[in-house]
Nucleic acid binder design. Sequence first.
DNA 1: TTTTTTTAAATGTCTGACAATTGAAAGATT
DNA 2: AATCTTTCAATTGTCAGACATTTAAAAAAA
Lengths: 241, 241
Amino acid sequence: MGERKQSADLSVEIATAIREAIIEGRLIVDERLPSEAELSEEFSVSRPTVREALKRLAAQNLIRTKRGASGGAFVNRLSFEEARGDLITTSTLLLSMNEVDFDTACEARFTLERACAPLSAERRSADHLATMRAEITRQGQAGLSDESFCASDVAFHRAFVDGAGNPVLSWQLAAAVEAIEPLMNMITYSQRDRTQVIALHTEIANAIERQDGLAADRALIRLSAYTQELARKAMELRKKR
Amino acid sequence: MGERKQSADLSVEIATAIREAIIEGRLIVDERLPSEAELSEEFSVSRPTVREALKRLAAQNLIRTKRGASGGAFVNRLSFEEARGDLITTSTLLLSMNEVDFDTACEARFTLERACAPLSAERRSADHLATMRAEITRQGQAGLSDESFCASDVAFHRAFVDGAGNPVLSWQLAAAVEAIEPLMNMITYSQRDRTQVIALHTEIANAIERQDGLAADRALIRLSAYTQELARKAMELRKKR
DNA sequence: TTTTTTTAAATGTCTGACAATTGAAAGATT
DNA sequence: AATCTTTCAATTGTCAGACATTTAAAAAAA
């Protein structure tokens, strides 16, 4: 593991070397890395430098550390669940820092989500359908805050995507669906808006129930159009003030 | 910025506090963070601990550091290009560490890619089309290694996706298309295989040229089926040995 | 045999120092 | 006055050594 490239910070070099070892399979899941003292020997650097390198890897969920005897740094099994959070954070920041307009983000989101419709319709389980129905019910409750409405909306669509039964798809769509939530929160849903959204959600759930992918797709298209219309109105309202 | 949650490693707490500040917009792009010395004062920890926290953030591309007078740590503008590499790495590791079978990964990939077909057909520029044609030409060259063929395959599909003209979609699809490349490399493309793949690529390019999204979708479906068939054959061959 | 104590190994944290880099200020030169 | 050179101070990068804390295993005691 000891070779390393030149002309970068030492902690970057070391982190890169170990990362490569993990990616190339020379370090396998749950394998223990040498101790910090041993690594500092191996790379001929001080322990603080090794530690900075390990923190870089820990930030990417590539390793986990445990204290005590028989502790140390271990190669972490990257789980979809773990990676999901990071992906959402990254997506959120990408959208907010690059001034991606709502239409673009919305288009990406519904384009990807619509792609799941045929699979979800074919494979949906009773469990996913029940979640979708439950969220629709929640969305109809009086006194629900806009934030809670949005959160329920996210949960609904996540159940829809999970219904496709493909963990890779679910993982990817998490970013598309959830990262856009902060953008949606700028829409303040009136009672009438909610009724419309709930109607479309119900339409989607019904289509999924009878395994009609095309109908689900059509409902998603209309939901997409309606979402963009709401956003446009919210924008105009904001401009006036 | 000084408040922090309890009962975790100090460097984690500090990294989390700063990360929150960035996400919530209290620290904006290109703003300079306090110096390490000031941060260690602010959080009442030593400088090495602050540094470990900053390395965590640097590993997530949230900050960049510069030495010297008027140096320091600055909030980094997360670019799609920067984030793409990390996303591909994460996806690759997720696939390899979670024993995702080829069919699942392949299904996710083509499901997402097919979703781009209508947009790509509608918006494709001469530039994207030229890239696709160029990659097809390269794929036909004699003596091309399997690795280079795969790389060209990736470039072709990336041009296809970029043709949709939606940076968010392009970013998301990078993971789907590129992370699966290592899996595809287990297929050793015979001359006959390549001819078939090139024919389908040509079909896709032609469909995009005449802005026929449906035809592009149909060709993608057949490419998906053919890819899975090749993988199945490669699997069987591997079993026999 | 079971429970308690000790011990050693490992990460987490601190202190203090020096090296390297870099922009800006001060000074020297034309 | 303008320009080049030198010095300086601020900041990150690195190092050495120490102590604190946690943890599992070994040793000792019951």
